[in-house]
Write a protein that binds this DNA or RNA. Structure first.
Lengths: 218, 218
DNA sequence: ATACTGACCGACCGTACGGTCAGTGTATTT
DNA sequence: AAATACACTGACCGTACGGTCGGTCAGTAT
């Protein structure tokens, strides 16, 4: 009944190492790289600081390990879109509906990666693409490209751009829902489902081919 | 209306103090609060560390001073954004492009504010949002509202949501282009104008009433 | 019994941090 | 000429940082 065998398959992980990773993911996602000390990680994890250096070569190495583990968690999102049944449009609509919830379900993980993505640093951006999120995005682009070849996505559009728009709309909400609540006019942002539904209504209507009325009335 | 004397009127500033503020804005916007040391600020500003403490009570006080100056600067600049004088669609395209240019034109200042809004506590965030985002959102909101009353914007849509989508698309690019440009498949992200144009193609197509095919070929 | 392994720890190192303080140099006021 | 005001500095303080080191201890294979 324990959830203790999550990723122990690939590399054997001691209880301490798992605790370290868990503590690090929480602290780094909340406070960023510079805002976290190895001492605080050790304390939260309930191990000695020296033990962290037994498992990880440096603070940077620990950070990178967490980033990659996090990216792996997020790739499940694309799996859902890839493996769903129905045609592209149906899968896309289901995906769009649940995507935002999924993001919030992996809040710590996502915050960690977004912090890096939005840092604006060129070098970090490159490393991020090459080692962390590049593969996920390419798979997403490919799915949209197939959707276009199937005649569902409008012909003139860049599939990658459409994918990023869909992704960006949800990421934007994930990042800024706290502040959106303070804007009086933005009543649509009070509830996640409402935001997702109305936003997806606009952008799907904007990029899908209009054969019949595409269920966009209300 | 010159933008050259923003805050020199209220309090006399010595050359050293100006250099400190300038250095601090650059460093804090690039590296965040925890990633900047008072020593590095002093070095870049070309003054002693003690001199910073002569002008500012603490690191927090320096950071706060910069935040306030930046927020004020941004809110003033936003008011000068061009809007275009053509039809509804043309106005929005000009506005979106101008807004995006505006974001990049004040990159350091903006990054500073965004960091605080997205990761700071609610209280500070709310003040900043009201001061910086409020004005521009309201202007866009009015444009969309007029468009809807004129029958150009689809009737079921929330004008505030449309405004938020447009701003979000620009903001998302500002924050993520450092990563996007390292993805070969995301060629649309290499040039600002191209990104803005193609994104607007999609979302305008999703928002506007479809009388004819809305001129989205290239 | 012995030898070996790997998880783990307390104590420590050099450095950099935020912040303080006594004092210097230089204008302006009296 | 003396006094006041203020921008500015070098040296210093206590603390916390990332990282290292010698060593303990349980498990295990020989």
């Amino acid at each position: 009944m324990q959830a203790s065998e999550i990723s122990t398959a690939a590399t054997r992980q001691s209880a301490g190492e798992i605790a370290i990773l868990k503590a690090a993911i929480r602290l780094f996602s909340e406070n960023g790289f510079d805002g976290v000390s190895m001492r605080s990680v050790a304390e939260i994890a309930g191990v000695s600081k020296a033990n962290i250096y037994h498992h990880f070569a440096s603070k940077e190495a620990l950070y990178l390990a967490i980033m990659q583990e996090s990216a792996q968690k997020l790739s499940v999102l694309v799996d859902n879109l890839e493996e769903g049944d129905g045609d592209f449009e149906q899968r896309l609509r289901v995906f769009a509906q649940g995507h935002l919830d999924h993001l919030f379900g992996n809040a710590s993980t996502l915050r960690l990666i977004l912090r890096e993505v939005f840092s604006g640093d060129d070098e970090k951006g490159r490393v991020l693409v090459e080692q962390v999120v590049g593969g996920i995005l390419l798979r997403l682009f490919e799915i949209f490209k197939e959707g276009q070849e199937a005649g569902v996505l409008r012909a003139g559009l860049d599939p990658a751009l459409c994918a990023m728009l869909l992704l960006g709309v949800d990421l934007f909400y994930f990042q800024s829902h706290g502040m959106l609540k303070h804007i009086p006019q933005a009543g649509f942002a009070l509830q996640r489902e409402q935001y997702s539904r109305e936003m997806m209504d606009v952008i799907l209507n904007g990029m899908l081919v209009q054969d019949v009325e595409a269920g966009v009335q209300q």
